[in-house]
Design a protein around this nucleic acid. Sequence first.
DNA 1: TGAGTATGTGAGTGATTACTCACTATATTA
DNA 2: TAATATAGTGAGTAATCACTCACATACTCA
Lengths: 212, 212
Amino acid sequence: MSDMIDTLRHDEKMTPKQIEILKAAIELISEKGYYNTSTSEIAERAGVAEGTIFRHYRTKKDLLIKIVKPVITDFSASFFAEQFVHQVFREKYGHFEDLLYAFIKNRFEFAQSNVPLIKILLQELAFHPEIQTAYKRAFSEKVYPALNQAIDFYKQKGELRDLPNETIIRMVVPSVLGFMMTRFILKPDQNWDDEAEIKQTITVIMGGVGGT
Amino acid sequence: MSDMIDTLRHDEKMTPKQIEILKAAIELISEKGYYNTSTSEIAERAGVAEGTIFRHYRTKKDLLIKIVKPVITDFSASFFAEQFVHQVFREKYGHFEDLLYAFIKNRFEFAQSNVPLIKILLQELAFHPEIQTAYKRAFSEKVYPALNQAIDFYKQKGELRDLPNETIIRMVVPSVLGFMMTRFILKPDQNWDDEAEIKQTITVIMGGVGGT
DNA sequence: TGAGTATGTGAGTGATTACTCACTATATTA
DNA sequence: TAATATAGTGAGTAATCACTCACATACTCA
């Protein structure tokens, strides 16, 4: 729970009540969706007067944006920042599989600590142009270039097939996302051997499902 | 557009106004979501008095269910019915790749004719237990057994790796879904060579992205 | 034709919505 | 301490919500 707020950390200082408002809003919106969650409900769960919400957030939508934007930034930026891309070329990840493992592991842990936030992002992405814009920008400016560089690098080393980069991305990303959605949203209660599942996912991405 | 209504075909005869209501509801809900679409809006777009909606559908939710349920049934049942599963064992699809091609092609065409309905299904699945139940039942009763049989069959023929069936399903389904979502929802306007994309998707599913 | 039924209407209802504002309480700084 | 700013309150508001119901119209079949 504190993870979620960490992710949301804005530069400004927040009052205790403001934190309670964010926590309540995240809980309720991730469960019932933005349009089916009322500001009076949020106030009640946060133990706060309804007016207090609007003291900190101009509108209900402003509250949603303030919740979702840091998730987009964090998800796309943090891992694809210098540390990561440069490490690729410093041979930290000798094989594409090593990179893939680090990538999945990293995003897996992020997802694990932020299930409600990611649920909100996925669910509301469809309905709010502001969120779509922010997401597209983050992807095309941060994620896509980083992926592109890395793929080119490993293609050159002969570790990747000579497929269009877009195709490779379109095969790798859903495989990883599909695993995480099954893991955290569809069947969160199942007994998972996460380490084994991650390795198996990598195996299949690399070698497909085809037989000998 | 008429495709959508075809998918919805209930046994009972529908009046022209009822059809207009369904069409309007599908349009609006797929664009703005269930909770952000009001019955007055639906009535207005359908060219109908608001009371008429409730003459045919007991509640607003009833209207949603009547829209979504046939999609679940159609999507899961039609292709996995006898025709398909039996054809597998009659050697109609000699190789797993052939089956995969027929499968993707079939679901691709279904998706193409029903984009708004599938959008509604995906978006509202998260919030309505009734829909979740219907979906889970359809999957576990129709889709999963059919896939299981087919996978066992091709494993025995040595055309599939000896991975757990669940793993194979968890790798194949997101790849196909990922392609379709990119194709119809994320980038519907891009120039697509559908046939080539489908074949490439199959290639990657079978052989992974790994190099020689 | 006439009686009965199915379909369609739209003004009306109480509940709920996001948001406001005059006010109080607390913290900050002069 | 006095003055000012910030944080918190909750009753109030106009708009909108899903849904009802008395009534009008159109269709069916004896």
